[in-house]
């Protein structure tokens, strides 16, 4: 049972009219890993996620989540997964406490909103509305709500887009914590540094197809084995290292 992948996708396709968004992809996500889906905009990452999340119906193919056929039993799949959409997804007029109670009620799980907010460093925002939060706070809150139903796997769609380096690192730490508690994480990103730091394995998508799948280290070795060499001298540190060194790792908000 444990060797069975938590997510298994076979020959998945999605056509929008004559446009092929996802062109027959197959892959598996192992239990307990952080799995990255990388690719330029329009590669089909979000469509792939939304088909696994049962929000969109595939044109063809099979999807299994935790052994459940997602096309036949979307409701059972929804109960074992957590979701963070690319943008917002929350009532603008409700407070964070109300939103947590709202989602907990929809999932039918008991929840202590204060404990949830405290874990994600949002306890002083309990009475604010979602649209009053900073970018990093929004993504933390979104991650918090994706975990309310104690899912086996969560799907995060570009969670760090638009965040400053401190907020991005803070979110990486939280994602690693979530994984350490046994939840599998599937994440899309177009930051390669993020994928290298965070992901156990990555699938690289382009034009609706998966063109490579492996560990970040393995893919780099593969490229080097072809004789590829960077034409520049290897840097001991990056500008981002300088930025973090100078401004610190602690979160800046408001």
């Amino acid at each position: 049972m444990e060797t069975q992948p938590i997510v298994e996708v076979r020959n998945l396709r999605k056509h929008f009219g004559s446009v092929v968004a996802v062109d027959g992809i197959s892959f598996g996500v192992r239990r307990g890993e952080i799995f990255g889906i990388l690719g330029p905009n329009g590669a089909g990452k979000t469509t792939t996620l939304e088909m696994i999340e049962t929000i969109q119906r595939p044109t063809a193919g099979e999807i299994y989540v935790d052994g459940i056929d997602a096309l036949r039993h979307p409701d059972r799949v929804k109960a074992v997964i957590g979701i963070q959409l690319q943008a917002a997804g929350f009532y603008p007029d409700l407070t964070l406490t109300q939103l947590i109670k709202f989602f907990a009620g929809l999932y039918g799980v008991p929840v202590d909103p204060r404990a949830v907010l405290k874990r994600f460093q949002l306890e002083d925002k309990a009475r604010s509305t979602f649209d009053k939060l900073s970018g990093g706070q929004k993504q933390r809150f979104s991650l918090a709500t994706s975990l309310l139903n104690r899912p086996k796997v969560i799907f995060l769609d570009e969670p760090t887009t638009g965040l400053d380096p401190q907020a991005r690192r803070n979110l990486w730490d939280l994602i690693r914590e979530v994984r350490a508690e046994g939840t599998t994480v599937v994440i899309t990103t177009h930051y390669m540094e993020e994928a290298e730091q965070l992901c156990d394995r990555v699938a690289i998508m382009d034009r609706g197809r998966i063109i490579r799948l492996g560990t970040p280290r393995g893919l780099i070795e593969e490229l080097l084995a072809t004789g590829f060499r960077k034409p520049v001298v290897r840097q001991e540190a990056s500008l981002e290292d300088v930025f973090i060194h100078l401004t610190g790792r602690s979160l800046r908000e408001e």
């Binding site: 929000i55 929804k78 979701i83 959409l85 943008a87 997804g89 929350f90």
Partner: peptide, 18 residues
């Protein structure tokens, strides 16, 4: 339309509630 544009409707549909 607001719920569609802010993806709230999509997020609600991602819960097990029909």
């Amino acid at each position: 339309i607001g719920l569609k544009r802010t993806l709230v409707l999509k997020r609600l549909l991602a819960t097990p509630v029909p």
